[in-house]
Simulated assay, not measured.
Amino acid sequence: MKMRHVRALAVFGIALVALTGARGSGGGGCDSHSNSGSSSSSSGGGSGSHHDNDDNGTSGGSVSGGSGSANEALRDITIDTCAYDAATKNLTARITVKNDGALDYDYDVTLKFKGTSATPATATTTDIAVAAGASKSADMTTPYPGTGDGSEYTKCEVTRASRS
Rank of each mutant, 00 (worst) to 15 (best):
K2R: 14
S162W: 02
N35R: 12
I95R: 01
H33E: 12
S38M: 04
T122Y: 04
P120M: 09
G28Y: 07
G26D: 11
G28M: 07
T126N: 09
S135I: 09
S59H: 12
S43G: 11
T92N: 12
D106G: 08
T116C: 13
H33M: 11
T154E: 08
T96W: 00
T116S: 10
I14L: 10
L19M: 14
A161R: 00
T110A: 12
T141I: 05
G29C: 01
G115I: 01
L103G: 07
I95M: 02
T124G: 02
H5N: 09
K112G: 04
L103P: 03
F12R: 14
T141W: 03
D80L: 09
T110M: 08
V6W: 11
A8S: 15
S38Y: 06
A22T: 06
D52Q: 13
L19D: 11
V11H: 03
Y144I: 04
G48T: 02
N56Q: 14
T124S: 12
V63W: 09
S164L: 13
S25H: 14
G66I: 03
D149P: 04
S36W: 02
H50Q: 10
H5K: 09
S40A: 12
T110Y: 05
G45N: 13
T116I: 13
G61S: 14
T88N: 07
A18R: 02
H33N: 15
